Computed example of a mutant assay.
Amino acid sequence: MSYDIEKSNAEWRAELSPEEYRVLRGAEDEAAFTGEYTDAKEKGVYSCRACGADLFTSEEKFDSRCGWPAFYDPKDLDSVEVQQSESPYPVVRCARCGSYLGELFEGEGFATPTDKRYCINSLSLRLKPGDSE
């Protein structure tokens, strides 16, 4: 797969903390209920911690009580990439750099416009406070 931002593992390791690298580049999830954005209510735009691409806004964030930040839709349809994986749930990646964000769940009955839950690791995100547009 080709992305707008491509770097070697050594370059990513130099830019990211070990924990960020483990999640973003190693595709491992952080422990539930430990992320800084799990219960965040601040307004703003959530961007990719690896490359800075805008991914989700606080407008699409909802409380799913799953232990990770949850969004019912990305900021723009082309900001994230959903890939089938070996797990039963599709993997969500940043469309700009390919970094691992989390997984997508559908049809769980949440009262959201899409009935989708983008379950995203806090370590994959950085909140830019302010207007969510």
Rank of each mutant, 00 (worst) to 15 (best):
S47R: 15
E36F: 11
D29R: 12
F71S: 07
Y100K: 07
K43N: 14
R49V: 15
L24Y: 01
P88F: 09
K41Y: 06
Q83M: 14
R13L: 13
R65H: 15
C119T: 05
D54M: 13
S79R: 11
E28V: 15
R117V: 08
A111E: 13
A31I: 01
E28W: 05
E11Y: 11
M1W: 10
R96H: 14
Y21S: 09
P18L: 03
K128V: 14
Q84M: 12
K61Y: 04
D131R: 10
R117P: 01
G44W: 01
F110L: 04
R96D: 12
Q84P: 12
G67N: 02
E133R: 13
V82E: 08
S132L: 03
C94D: 05
K75R: 08
S132E: 10
V45K: 12
K116E: 13
E19M: 05
K41P: 07
A27T: 05
E19S: 12
N9C: 00
Y21K: 06
A32P: 14
Y89K: 15
S85I: 09
S47P: 04
S132T: 05
D131E: 14
C119A: 04
S2H: 13
K128A: 14
E103H: 15
K128Y: 05
S8E: 07
V23Y: 01
S2I: 12
E19A: 14
E86W: 12
E60K: 07
T114Y: 02
G44P: 03
A95F: 08
V80C: 01
E106W: 02
T112P: 08
E60P: 00
A40G: 10
L125I: 08
K128L: 13
F33Q: 02
S122K: 03
F56A: 04
A32T: 15
A70Q: 10
R65V: 11
L127G: 11
T57K: 01
L55D: 00
Q83F: 13
E28R: 13
G109T: 08
D115M: 06
T34E: 03
E103D: 14
S99W: 00
Y21P: 08
E36L: 12
T38K: 12
E19P: 00
G98N: 08
V92H: 00
V92C: 01
A27V: 03
S17M: 06
Y37N: 09
Y21L: 09
P18K: 05
D78R: 10
E59A: 12
D29W: 07
G130Y: 00
F110W: 09
E106A: 14
E108H: 03
P113G: 08
R22Y: 07
C97N: 02
R22F: 05
W68F: 06
E42A: 15
T34F: 06
S99K: 00
D39G: 13
E11P: 12
Y46L: 02
Y100G: 13
E108M: 07
V45Y: 06
W12E: 08
F62Q: 06
D78F: 06
G26M: 04
S64H: 10
A95H: 11
S85L: 09
D78P: 05
Y21M: 10
G67V: 04
T112D: 04
E81A: 12
L77W: 03
E60T: 15
Q84E: 15
